[in-house]
Design a protein around this nucleic acid. Structure first.
Length: 562
RNA sequence: GGCGACGUAGCUCAGUUGGUUAGAGCGUGGGAUUCAUAACCCCAAGGUCGGUGGUUCAAUUCCACCCGUCGCUACCA
């Protein structure tokens, strides 16, 4: 069975990371690793993929951080945009374009989007009362207001929710409200905002989602809860000066709500990509072609926006495709505790990369992905996965075979000779792997897919062990050559199958096998073709995955929570 | 409070559209081997499938309730 695609067009996005801090492991596990694996696989399969991302650079938290540090919001986002882009690059997560929402291009496109909806009557004005902090000179988002809970009378309740009793609050209900930033008492002021008519899309959204039974249950169930409660119109503007200005007369000081403009960033990033290609209209081939499969990779915190608000906005706009899939992952905990950047209970990607190569972490999040429930990262487990799976099973399979060939067959591919049943059995397993791994990846089951990959490496070790080429060498050199050749063909297949999961190591393995680093022209469907020719020289041998020693792990673990 | 998820071997997890002995990897114990990053390969021990009740010829699987863990509840990925 061929697993080659017929040039399917796929537009893949990964959630825009918020530019008020560096990238941490939770970001990677939830959205970016799964997205990159999916994209690499689809490309190998022959699909036409555009992979889009960028920094989300607006919103109140960034302005607050800027105030605290005495710099401009632009300086904050410039800093973290650069840090995050570098982290992605070094993790081998390769977007076709990594944009940023503070670009004039994005502002223009967001404003056009807003005006489009406004023209069509999906946006209305409303006066509302909100807390304003005079010393800070800004309206306060609900969570930046603290006070006594009107229900349980515990101090420190936030404007949106009381931590103590868990009740959902309205900020006006708080007793003795205080600005969380400066401690002053805010005043209620009237202010004008624009509301998106989300309620009018409930029926279309429900009908649309009913046609997506293949969506993950976490997304479907999350939405059905929202539908049951009934969708209400949502304000999509805010009173700050950092963001996309509302493009209407008399709207000075108003910007688009960051959650409204962020997904539009997928479009503007695509436009920027097309411009960089010198084909400025090319983005339309994806966004405006009904044949495009739009796939949004996100964390579970983003489900409502990507599965309800954003599709409704797209329906309202009318020119663009709707999401075909929204693979939302759950969260990642660190050593059993929820990630908390303020308590430094987090592991930063740039810190990780100071010490380790990207692939062991990619593998860890592939085999331990938070697909169905929250996953836990522990350094000990990371070490075990690296040493036990990557070094011992996969890496050592390569090393034991290649070093044997170096010693006894002059580092050239030994002749294939005549296959015996054991050889055919292994090659059959190789032949089945692309379809099995592909089927899992087509359903966004990275965990299952990468497990299949490791199972193939395990089968290789068993084969090598049972065939015992070191014993055959003394009895039957031709038989020994066949065994080594078969094991090499397996490794060639492994190097191609590894590409979506561990691209750097896949390349390293190909070079060791005497192949070009690039996989171009080697489709997924061609994997397992025994294309290593007899006598072809092998490349220089090196250790594919190094073991990680205990002290290194202890050192990393000690950094947490400090 | 509402909604939802999860609870299967010491650990991390599969699985069961209800049906003979419930699976994998790791860890542990034993064995074999020496090509290899003291790796690999084989074998074994280990589970009343969170609890109680119900439906059924039959429940780990379906239903109800309970317990435990966690998440979301419109600016924490």
């Amino acid at each position: 069975m061929s697993v080659d695609a017929t040039g399917e067009k796929i537009l893949v996005t990964a959630a825009l990371p918020y530019a008020n801090g560096p990238l941490h492991l939770g970001h990677l596990a939830g959205a970016y690793i799964p997205a990159d694996v999916y994209v690499r696989y689809q490309r190998q399969k022959g699909a036409d993929v555009l992979f889009i991302c960028g920094s989300d650079e607006h919103g109140v938290p960034i302005t607050i951080r800027a105030d605290r540090e005495g710099v401009t919001p632009q300086e904050i986002v410039d800093r973290y945009h650069a840090v995050m882009a570098d982290s992605f690059r070094r993790m081998a997560i390769h977007f076709d374009n990594y944009s940023r929402t503070s670009l004039p291009l994005h502002h223009r496109i967001s404003q056009e989007f807003f005006l489009n909806l406004h023209r069509k009557g999906f946006i209305r004005e409303e006066m509302v009362r909100q807390f304003y902090c005079a010393p800070c000179r800004r309206f306060l988002p609900d969570r930046y207001i603290e006070g006594e809970c009107p229900l349980c009378h515990e101090a420190g309740a936030r404007g949106d929710q009381c931590e103590a009793c868990g009740r959902w609050l309205e900020p006006e209900l708080l007793i003795a409200p205080k600005c969380k930033v400066c401690g002053a008492s805010p005043e209620l002021r009237s202010t004008r905002h624009w509301y998106f008519a989300l309620s009018r899309f409930q029926e279309s959204l429900e009908r649309w989602q009913a046609s997506k039974p293949e969506w993950k249950s976490n997304v479907r169930e999350f939405c059905s809860g929202w539908f049951k409660e009934g969708l209400t119109d949502r304000p999509i503007t805010r009173d700050i000066d950092w963001g996309v200005p509302v493009p209407l007369p008399g709207a000075e000081g108003k910007v688009l709500y960051v959650w409204f403009d962020a997904p539009i960033g997928y479009i503007s990033s695509s436009v920027e990509w097309a411009e960089k290609q010198g084909q400025p209209e090319r983005w339309r081939d994806y966004w405006m072609d009904p044949a495009t499969r739009l796939v949004h990779f996100i964390g579970k915190d983003n489900i409502v926006f990507h599965a309800i608000v954003w599709p409704a906005a797209l329906m309202a706009h009318g020119d663009y495709v709707l999401p075909a899939q929204i693979p939302a992952n759950e969260f990642l905990n660190i050593e059993g505790r929820k990630i908390s950047t303020s308590r430094n209970w987090a592991i930063w990607v740039d810190d990780y990369l100071e010490v380790f190569p990207p692939d062991p972490l990619r593998y860890y999040f592939e085999v331990n992905a938070p697909e169905n429930k929250d996953a836990d990262f522990t350094w000990k487990d990371f070490q075990a996965r690296n040493n036990g799976d990557l070094a011992d099973v996969l890496g050592n399979l390569v090393n034991r075979c290649l070093s044997f060939i170096e010693k006894h067959f002059e580092a050239r591919v030994p002749p294939a000779g005549t296959l015996q049943p054991a050889d055919r059995e292994l090659l059959d397993a190789v032949g089945r792997a692309p379809a099995a791994i592909g089927a899992a990846l087509d359903q966004f089951q990275v965990r299952r897919a990468v497990t299949e990959l490791m199972d193939l490496a395990r089968a290789g070790n068993k084969y090598f062990n049972d065939a015992a080429p070191w014993a055959e060498l003394k009895k039957d050199r031709e038989r020994c050559a066949t065994i080594l050749n078969t094991t090499l063909q397996l490794q060639l297949a492994l190097s191609a199958l590894m590409e979506p999961f561990m691209p750097q190591s896949a390349e390293k393995l190909r070079l060791m096998l005497g192949r070009p680093a690039s996989l171009v022209g080697e489709p997924w469907g061609g994997i397992g073709g025994r294309t290593l020719a007899d006598g072809q020289p092998l490349g220089p041998r090196e250790i594919l995955f190094h073991k990680i020693e205990d002290p290194i792990i202890a050192e990393q673990a000690a950094k947490l929570g400090t």
